[in-house]
Computed example of a mutant assay.
Amino acid sequence: MNEKFLELTEEKQMRIIDAAMEVFGTNEYKHAVTDEIARKAGISKGLLFYYFKNKKSLYQYVYQYCLQLLVDTIDEAGVKNKTDFFEIMRFGADKKMELIANHAYIMEFCMKAYYMNDENIAEKITQDIQQKVNTMFTDYFSHIDLFKFKEGIDPFYIFQMLQWMADGYIRTKQKTKEKLDINEIMEDYDRWEEMFKQMVYRKEYL
């Protein structure tokens, strides 16, 4: 990325980032057209490539921006002060909702990135995501109140199961070409959360 991009006003930077999220989020990477990104951002294609060397460079920048935005949003909100496992899970989900309200296509972009299969960029993206998932539990759940769990229950496996369920849910939606509806997703998540809480928490904490 050309450092001149960071010299732009925040409003101009966000026009380009949001345009890229929309085009990359609604198309497979190879079908995402940089002319369309430039048009939606209100700049010329030449200027877009002045700021970013190529399509891959732009994509990787926007991906890193989204990842850092999510981490900063959760960290700044004091999630590490919470000790209830399901409260932390819900808190993270609510913060993602706030991000979606401010960036209309951030969910579509992140989902496309998560399931990226373009060989030119998929390996690096997959490594980044896996590394973040591997550290997420330690970062946000290491201080939870373990006494709330029934004997023999490991919260890490509950965390993994919820992730796997969400992964399968989204893959099914994508296979059937259904549009991802955040409100519908959260309604289903509420049901999963209640079901798991009943299974793993001691009665006095339900």
Rank of each mutant, 00 (worst) to 15 (best):
M107G: 01
K197E: 14
E28M: 05
H31R: 14
T26D: 05
A93R: 11
D181Q: 07
D145V: 03
F91H: 08
L206V: 12
F109Q: 01
D181P: 10
E119Y: 08
F24D: 00
K95V: 08
N183I: 09
K132Q: 14
C110F: 05
T176P: 01
G168P: 00
L69C: 03
M14H: 03
T138K: 12
K82F: 11
Q127E: 13
F147A: 13
E36H: 04
D84A: 10
Y205H: 05
Q130V: 05
F52H: 05
I88D: 04
Q160Y: 06
T126P: 01
I43Y: 05
E184R: 06
A19R: 06
E184K: 12
E123K: 10
A104K: 12
E76C: 09
I88A: 06
G78K: 13
M186L: 15
E108L: 06
K132M: 09
I185E: 11
K177G: 00
F5M: 10
M199W: 07
E123C: 05
T73N: 15
K53A: 12
D75M: 09
W192D: 13
K53E: 13
I144F: 07
Y63A: 09
F159G: 12
F149T: 01
D188V: 03
L146K: 14
E193N: 12
A122V: 06
Y105D: 14
K4Q: 12
F156H: 12
M186D: 11
A166H: 09
L6H: 11
E178I: 04
V62A: 08
L69Q: 10
C110W: 03
E10D: 14
Q130P: 03
S57T: 13
K55G: 00
K150Y: 04
E28G: 06
M199L: 15
Q198W: 10
T176R: 11
A41V: 02
E119P: 07
L99M: 12
Y140K: 03
F91I: 07
F159V: 02
M195I: 07
F196G: 05
D94C: 07
L180C: 09
